[in-house]
Design a binder for these strands. Sequence first.
DNA 1: ACAAAGCATGAGTAATTTCGATTATTTGGA
DNA 2: TCCAAATAATCGAAATTACTCATGCTTTGT
Lengths: 298, 298
Amino acid sequence: MSNFDYLDIDGRLLRILVAVYEEGSITRAAQRLGITQSGVSHLLEKLRGIVGDPLFVKSGRSVVATARACVLVVEARRLLDELHDFGSKAEFSPASLEQTLTIAANDLQRDLLLPALFALLKQEAPGLCFRVIPSNIPSTELLRADRCQLAISPRPPEGTDILQRRLFDDRYVVFFDTEVRSAPDDLADYLAAEHVTVVYEPQRSLDIDDYLKNKGIIRHFGVCVAGFAGIRSFLKGSQYLATLPQRLGANQLAGFGQAEVLFDCPAMPMYAIWHKRYQHDPMMRWLLNKLYQVATHI
Amino acid sequence: MSNFDYLDIDGRLLRILVAVYEEGSITRAAQRLGITQSGVSHLLEKLRGIVGDPLFVKSGRSVVATARACVLVVEARRLLDELHDFGSKAEFSPASLEQTLTIAANDLQRDLLLPALFALLKQEAPGLCFRVIPSNIPSTELLRADRCQLAISPRPPEGTDILQRRLFDDRYVVFFDTEVRSAPDDLADYLAAEHVTVVYEPQRSLDIDDYLKNKGIIRHFGVCVAGFAGIRSFLKGSQYLATLPQRLGANQLAGFGQAEVLFDCPAMPMYAIWHKRYQHDPMMRWLLNKLYQVATHI
DNA sequence: ACAAAGCATGAGTAATTTCGATTATTTGGA
DNA sequence: TCCAAATAATCGAAATTACTCATGCTTTGT
């Protein structure tokens, strides 16, 4: 004597209710569903136990629905539709997207990539809303706690649940104001000059600055500002040199002179970084595709 | 390699999705649901196959929900509520009843029982709407095809799916206008008088008239009208006698004289008749109770 | 590096579903 | 009135599924 309850209701049960109701016969319902009459009879018995109503009573040689069954059939049809939607792989349509997209990036990536990316996304998804949160080196925690959907950074965090893809490699060049000085002639000239660079909050230097320091290349910093946006105004009209990613020349540092660095220097990669939870999310696929598109056209 | 689809979604599966989401852990979800971690893991695997999304991905030593899972959890909670409603024995409340009640009755029952019944029902169920369809002797087909929910008749139809209950027994009496004549002294007097009675459409006589005819008691009919409502105006101010159910004296034939019949005469029963499909319907239970109440207070 | 926590997986068992066959009931016709 | 056709319920057996136990693998914190 099994004791079923509402948790045991599944799509098959609902489908049987609807089929028997519509066919007005258990045998024909079974034929329609491609199972045996016996099977339908048994499952109907189960459903009867759950809802506490005979649902169909024998009348003549067939069955007719009880008042309760008539009500439940309407419900069952709706529930079946909803279960179907539930199970179906929700197809993604940017046009009907209504959500906020949070991206972690520092000001370099923000100014370099995001304006173009947002313009591109907005074309297809007018309902999308953007939020940019600052993050030099995004933490695993940031992504894990879902405080942002995407991070853009040269240094992807470690973690087995963190996924990444390189967007581009940038190389370092030396920026200077051509109206004030010329490119450094050699390493000695470079080292003799005063430099300007970016330092974040509690003494976090840029990759390149750390790298050169470790290599024994000691420079004298005249100015350290808290973001790439601040560089321009210090560099303008001064003798300073700034050793920064080449792509800054296209926007922030447009109009400045560029010289190759005079020592071995690693490239600066840029990564799109996201959490594994979005790995199968069509929205993320779409977003990443757009981001690659923007990154390769810069 | 079982291939599940949306029809295999049941309450347990939805509950697991919600529990894992809320607990943020498969183990804790299992504890909450009172099954093993392994069981949850297996069922989650099944659900993953159905919706085509990992739903939860390992992150650290626990799991976090994918974007898809977040959406589905909301759906799942709603579906669970709906399944619960579906399975719960919908308690019946007359006050919230919004439907049409169709009763088959001929004019005798209609005028005798239904006004009082409707008044009683309306007190509890203001949203109820009534429809009365004429039917001398309700056919099995009428009830089987659900063309009415209830029939009231002296002659219940045969049929294994037809249920009935006697409301009352009425006896026949002789009605006459006391201002014109007195009660018939004896059978000869009774038979000498002219009679008025009811005959339906194509020559269907009343039970009593058929009965007397078969018994050899031949009367002379001065008037045959097509319904009980027509009797009164013919009987008023005339010598006619009318042999009809006693209870008519309370309404239709109020004020007329009544005399006992002068021969053996069967009682006239009255039955409430309904189809088996309504046997467990709380609305029908309620309706029948009210009907008994009305019938016994007449 | 190691222990603890947590998820996945495989095998085994109990429960459920499904099927095939049979039984019981009803209807319509000989 | 009895029989054949139609149909639902029921029974036993096979197939499938749900769940548990035991175990392995990964991550985390000490």
